[in-house]
Design a binder for these strands. Sequence first.
DNA 1: ATATCTTAGTTTATTCGATAGACAAACAAA
DNA 2: TTTGTTTGTCTATCGAATAAACTAAGATAT
Lengths: 383, 383
Amino acid sequence: METMSWNQQIVKKNNKALVLQLIMEKEPISRADIAQISGLHKATVSSLVNELLEESLIFESGPGESSGGRRPVILHFNKSAGYAVGIDIGVNYVLCVLTDLNGNIIIEKNQSVKRTPYPAIMTIIQSMIQSIIDEMPVSKYGIVGIGVGVPGIVNIQGSILLAPNLGWSNIQLKKDLEELFHVPVIIENEANAGAFGEQQFGAGQDFQNILYISAGIGIGVGIILNKELYQGKNGFSGEMGHMIIDLNGKPCSCGSRGCWEAYASENALLELADSDSLESLIELAENGDATAQRLFEEIGTYLGYGINNIINTFNPDQVILGNRLALAREWIEQPIRTTIENHTLTHHQNEMHLNFPKLGKYSTSLGVSAFVVEKFIKEEVNS
Amino acid sequence: METMSWNQQIVKKNNKALVLQLIMEKEPISRADIAQISGLHKATVSSLVNELLEESLIFESGPGESSGGRRPVILHFNKSAGYAVGIDIGVNYVLCVLTDLNGNIIIEKNQSVKRTPYPAIMTIIQSMIQSIIDEMPVSKYGIVGIGVGVPGIVNIQGSILLAPNLGWSNIQLKKDLEELFHVPVIIENEANAGAFGEQQFGAGQDFQNILYISAGIGIGVGIILNKELYQGKNGFSGEMGHMIIDLNGKPCSCGSRGCWEAYASENALLELADSDSLESLIELAENGDATAQRLFEEIGTYLGYGINNIINTFNPDQVILGNRLALAREWIEQPIRTTIENHTLTHHQNEMHLNFPKLGKYSTSLGVSAFVVEKFIKEEVNS
DNA sequence: ATATCTTAGTTTATTCGATAGACAAACAAA
DNA sequence: TTTGTTTGTCTATCGAATAAACTAAGATAT
């Protein structure tokens, strides 16, 4: 157990983290502004800022605009002090990005894959990371970590217990990558990562309690409460694709019946359609195909049922509908909203925001990259 | 906003709270033990303990057993430094308890009610509290607050927005009670209160993430994550009675269809039965009535569907099935467990505990009383 | 019975980080 | 120029935790 008691060192670490956080969020900013906002004394801010300068986590960019007196020294977060690798393993692709510490994509590697045995995927990941390392700009801290988003059940220790759509079980990706590259590795469920990505950089930046629905081949949900990812006892939270919405309904691959994802996922959509891809169905709908439009309406309605359950359960600030089905926003948004209006408790609908991702296909990769950066910053400040 | 920055005073308050918490949890305990457990220096502990002694929040009871040297001075939490009132407003009863600061019931008032207009209930509550005040023992702090659990939607500010089974809407009970008795008043949803009660004093003491299902006339759920009550944006979390488990199912009083509580609540049970009370149905089942037994099995199965959704969503340490239907534990427990085994994801079932309340009908009243005590302690330590 | 070791708790001095207030630097406005 | 303002630093002080010495009160060995 961490020590339970508090002392001055902990105060200092937290204040230093606070100063850095303010610089990250509000740059350009002066020492005086930080003192103003944080409530810390300006001398304290000065001292902490100097430490951060020595660690190259921030830098000065000369004098700013005077507001009637001496001109302030403008501070910036040094987003290029190091870089993070974010990897999104999908069922038929691997997306790998290198981001700076602000989540800006510096390098991007994309590869589509046909089959997904672990060794094959591992080879792809390894060569992607290696080529990124070869291409990346020089920096003080280099690669500060690797994050991986996986469509499956990942425990808190980072083991992939089950990823049915990849055909994986009990995979020690974290250990393998750490042995290869000797940097911290974080493995997360892709819905959790997507939720965090949107909260940090995308549609969820202004909200406290966010439910991010990853509606792809299956459905997973990332739960952010009070701005923090909720993982559950073992890290398995958010398996709402297997929430029963129809007692005597369709059998699901999980062995249960009437699971949400048997009705409202991309798989469910394609089962109902003659088409073999979401993209072609969207094209049909755009060309006025009534059958395709009716299909999307049906899927939207089913999505709405599950979202109703989410809203009544969590009373969230925001629900984000992400992953593949978000591509069909134009066709599914209205049925979802109508379903909510017709079913969800009135009080819960007030001030509830239903949004779509701002990061597009990057939600997950930027999310895991953000986990890595967060961990790096935390450890750097506390050392 | 509270100040964002930290300083020595905050350290002191937290350490003082920690010392008090250890005394509350582990009494009898010595200064040396506290230093050992907390990691604080013994001099620090001594100083904080002395402050707590002066505030009468703890007391000494003389020397304890030697462990090879000087005998320690034994410290105790002064559970009688003040008292809290906890009120549970049900659809046909009002239960009112006075507890000490450890949640022991000192005085209990119980009254069954036929009709529930707010003025009538208010009169009952007022006279109950007044007679408790007349009877209660003298103490340093007197009544430290009043807590009320209500079957309805309560916002974070303590307004009762809607309590359909009482026929209430937009009731300012908090304001009214504060004006009458001039002590802090906390209003909470009864499921939230029940969850907190069981977590503090009952079945949930060893767990971090607890979902407490209040299965009565309707169904509500209290959500405790990382040992803290999760309330949602407005305080409306846990309205899982209106989670859709059957797409095209029965209409519900809320205007939706297929809501969980339309299948698995006491109301749902009684609709299916010829009987007019849960108690008489239980008696029938105990006397071997196969129809009654089959009914309970059905309700248990329906409860299981909803609990499946809860487990897959939250990956909790524990689910507690509380309120009225817990009385039928003997008849519903097995069908619930069977349903979970047949439907819930395997990984989520491991280490998941399904339990029943230890506090019986007192879960809610002790829960609100505990809210009051927690608030009092927090404010007392920080002053 | 005496000396020695152990444990409990207090007292005194020290350390460390935040803070108050004085100060210098740099600028605006009169 | 002069005056006032804002920014940032420097110095002294404060407050809480801590280390270490100390007192108190027991156990244990000889």
